[in-house]
Amino acid sequence: MPIIEIRNLSYVYHPNTPYEKKALDDISFTVGKGEFLGIVGSNGSGKSTLIQHFNGLIYPELGSILVSGQDTRDKDFREQLWKKVGLVFQFPEKQLFEATVFDELAYGLKNMGLAAAEIEMRVDEALKSVGLEPEQSRKRSPFSLSGGMMRRVAVASVLAMKPDILVLDEPTAGLDPEGSSHILQAIKKFQQDKGVTVILVSHCIDDLILLADRLAVLDQGKLLAWGLTRDVLAQENLAQYDRLLPDYLKMLFDLKKRGWVINTGLLTVEEACQEIAKILRRDGT
């Protein structure tokens, strides 16, 4: 049974004005429990609007969204949804405001009404999971940290709430490789250890290809493709959105365009090498 069910969702900004913009256009798909879904799309494709529907910040006027079977148009349900669905915004370090890292992580937990001992435990656990040493970082001011560390603190502040569904909007944007691998590892571990559903948004398939079980590709508010990662990559129509693709996939699609009979549903460069070698051998003999 799916944990999130999106049915014919549309969303329009500033209706009936010159600024009118259709952000989402008739989108339907589902997310299974414990699944890792990657949402891909370029800027302005509607990714950020879509994910704000998941924790009830925006509710649908056209179409509907069910989260664990309940409709988010129900106001009482929507207002409690933040406990179930943790949402990490783009550039989450912008939301930090407390005096110490500990208070920052404890903010959501206090709002949940947890006991002090439980909060202490969860803060330490969350800090460790993103690769920060609790003893060293607890008492520091979040504003004295580097950009990458601030990002990790912000992600940890949502992880500490232990949501059933974790949604992240471009969590690695603008980070160095070390910073992004800390965050991606923490997310993957969180999903595997706790059986949590994770939805990760990115403008580049590269980040998601090895992490995600399924992909959803958005373009200008429309759902272009949705399914298992390999199936989505194998699809013909993905080629025209090559700005979203990593280099080796661009090459595979290119070869396909030149008449090669080639499978593009491949996840790594090694797989691509093998596929090309296979075809060359077959054609050679």
Partner: peptide, 11 residues
């Protein structure tokens, strides 16, 4: 955006 982010942490 910040308001929404804090709401997501139960503000």
């Amino acid at each position: 955006i910040i308001t929404k982010a804090q709401k997501s942490r139960g503000a």
